[in-house]
C-alpha cells in the first residue's frame, strides 16, 4: 500500500524554521516505520537526517514522535497505524498520512536528530553505576536471591532512548527537571541489594529539580518502548527518600 510520511524537517544550516515535507512510499503492512525512512534516504532523498542502528528495539537510537506519540521507528509497524482494506490491499482511508517529528525537550540538530548531550548529562549526574555496599568478594559473585534480583529487574531494561524524556509534561515547564530516565537509572541501583543505594545519589535526587517535580502524569510509562513502569519507579524512589529522611528526623527537599 502507499502511505505518505509527513516529516517535520529542520536544517539549521539552511532553514529559519521547521517545515513539513511529504514523502510517498510503498510499504507492506508489516514494514517498520524505519524501513520506510531507510527507503527514503537510500532511494529518494539522501538529505533526510535520523539516527538508527539495531533496527529491532534494543539500541535506543530511533525514538521519535509518530502521530504525536513517542515511539521507536523500528518497533512500530505500518499495520499498527494504518487500517488496510482487505480487498484492495490499499490503505482503508486514502491517503494514509503518518506524521513524524523529532523528540521534544532536546534541541533539533537536523530533521529527526536531536541533541542528547544534556539528556545524558542528567543521566551521568545520578551516578548510574555500581557503588558496592560491601567489599568485593575474594573470589566469586556477590550472593543475591532471585527475589532481591527481581526488585530492580524492570529498571535494567532501560535503553536510554529518551522517549520518556520527550513525553514528560513536567519538562515543558521545568527544563531543569532531571527527567524520568535518569530516575529509572538511579532506581536500577537504589533497589539493588548489592549497591550502597540511595545515599550516594541523594544529593541529586532529593533536590528541587530531582524526583520532586514529577506529578505522576504517567506519560513516560505510556510511551516507554520497553514497558517499564516508570512512574511507579519514580514514586518508589520518592518513598525511599522520605523514609530515609524521616528516619533521621530530616526534611526532604520537597518539604523544605
Amino acid at each position: 500500500m502507499n502511505v505518505t510520511l509527513a516529516i517535520k524537517r529542520f536544517n539549521p544550516e539552511t532553514d529559519s524554521e521547521p517545515r513539513i515535507q511529504n514523502y510517498t512510499v510503498e510499504v507492506q503492512p508489516t514494514d517498520r516505520i524505519l524501513d520506510a525512512l531507510i527507503n527514503i534516504t537510500q532511494n529518494q532523498d539522501g538529505t533526510l537526517g535520523y539516527r538508527r542502528s539495531c533496527a529491532h528495539g534494543v539500541c535506543g537510537s530511533d525514538a521519535m514522535r509518530i502521530n504525536g506519540k513517542e515511539k521507536l521507528a523500528c518497533k512500530t509497524l505500518f499495520q499498527d497505524l494504518v487500517d488496510q482494506n482487505p480487498e484492495t490491499g490499499n490503505a482503508a482511508a486514502a491517503p494514509a498520512t503518518i506524521e513524524i517529528e523529532p523528540l521534544r525537550h532536546m534541541a533539533v540538530q537536523k530533521d529527526l536528530m536531536v541533541d542528547q548531550g544534556p539528556f545524558f548529562a542528567k543521566f551521568r549526574a545520578v551516578k548510574p553505576y555500581f557503588v558496592p555496599a560491601a567489599a568485593t568478594p575474594e573470589r566469586g559473585e556477590y550472593i543475591q536471591s532471585p527475589e532481591e534480583r527481581e526488585l530492580f529487574d524492570e529498571a535494567t531494561k532501560c535503553i536510554n532512548c529518551a522517549a520518556c524524556y520527550s513525553a514528560c509534561p513536567i519538562l515543558d515547564k521545568n527544563p531543569d527537571f532531571i527527567g524520568p530516565q535518569a530516575i529509572v537509572n538511579a532506581a536500577r541501583f537504589i533497589f539493588d541489594s548489592r549497591d550502597a543505594g540511595l545515599e550516594p545519589r541523594l544529593d541529586v535526587l532529593d533536590t528541587k529539580d530531582g524526583v520532586w517535580p514529577c506529578e505522576s502524569h504517567f506519560e513516560c510509562t505510556r510511551v516507554c518502548p520497553r514497558d517499564i513502569k516508570i512512574t511507579k519507579l519514580i514514586n518508589f524512589t520518592k518513598r525511599e527518600i522520605k523514609k530515609y529522611r524521616a528516619a533521621r528526623g530530616e526534611e526532604t527537599a520537597e518539604q523544605k
Binding site: 553505576y129 558496592p132 568485593t136 556477590y142 543475591q144 536471591s145 534480583r149 539493588d192 549497591d195
Partner: peptide, 8 residues
C-alpha cells in the same frame, strides 16, 4: 563484581 545484574 562491577554490578552486572545476572539472573540468579
Amino acid at each position: 563484581n562491577r554490578g552486572l545484574p545476572f539472573s540468579r
